[in-house]
Simulated scan of single mutants.
Amino acid sequence: MTMKKSLVIAISSVSGGGKTTITNELACQLPAASILRFDEYAFEGPENLAKWAKEGADYNAWNLAPLLEDVLLLKERYDLILLDYPFAYQNSRMKDVIDLAVYIDTPLDIALVRRMLRDYPEGSATVMKKDLSHYVTYGREAYLAMEHKIMPNSDIVIEGTLSKERITQRIIEEIDKFKW
């Protein structure tokens, strides 16, 4: 039995960097694609993300078996799989199924503002202050770890301040280079 050759594209960035927006836009332009979203899974992973980031952000500390199983299942049915997935090639179990890792390089201040607007459309100032304080004290380390580990190990890096249309077009140009 011959396994169908499919293309798996990982779209990575920091939280608020545009992964979901760009994955959704790609799905609109590539309707035969299937999407898997990291945030829709409950993974076993580090309990203290700040400590994990300070200790070197080992992306293999995450058990991504459920996501990997779904990718392998979808590879049999789809030509193109889009992963809304923050780790690119950094998890050793996932790296072998990814054909193209894209990193959206969004400045941390813009990513933070986008995340706050997304997560707190009607939020109270107290809740927002608590989240911002957590970001400054702990969360920023994890964002910086991504800039130092995920971005340089991605196949292409795209400026996150570009329009979603330009980012999507750039990714489609890369996808078109594959002969599958």
Rank of each mutant, 00 (worst) to 15 (best):
W62E: 00
E40R: 07
I35V: 15
E55K: 03
A27I: 08
G56N: 11
Y59D: 02
N60K: 12
P46N: 05
W62A: 01
G45S: 08
D39K: 09
L36R: 01
N48L: 12
P31N: 09
A57N: 10
A33R: 01
L30I: 15
T23S: 05
A50P: 01
I22N: 01
W62R: 00
L30Q: 09
Y59H: 03
N24K: 12
Y41W: 13
Y59R: 02
A32P: 09
A42H: 08
E55I: 09
W62I: 03
N48Q: 14
E40I: 11
F38D: 08
Y41C: 04
R37E: 11
A50V: 05
A32G: 15
F43G: 09
E55A: 07
N48M: 14
L30G: 04
P46D: 05
G56W: 10
A27V: 10
E55R: 05
L49S: 03
N24S: 12
P31V: 07
Y41T: 06
A32Y: 15
E40C: 12
E25H: 15
K51D: 13
K19C: 04
L49D: 02
A57M: 10
E47L: 12
K19H: 07
W52H: 07
T20R: 01
R37C: 11
N24A: 10
D58L: 06
A61T: 08
A53I: 01
G56D: 13
F43T: 14
A61M: 06
D58K: 03
Y59E: 05
S34A: 14
N48F: 14
T23C: 06
I35G: 08
A53C: 09
N24M: 07
A32H: 14
E47G: 13
A61F: 04
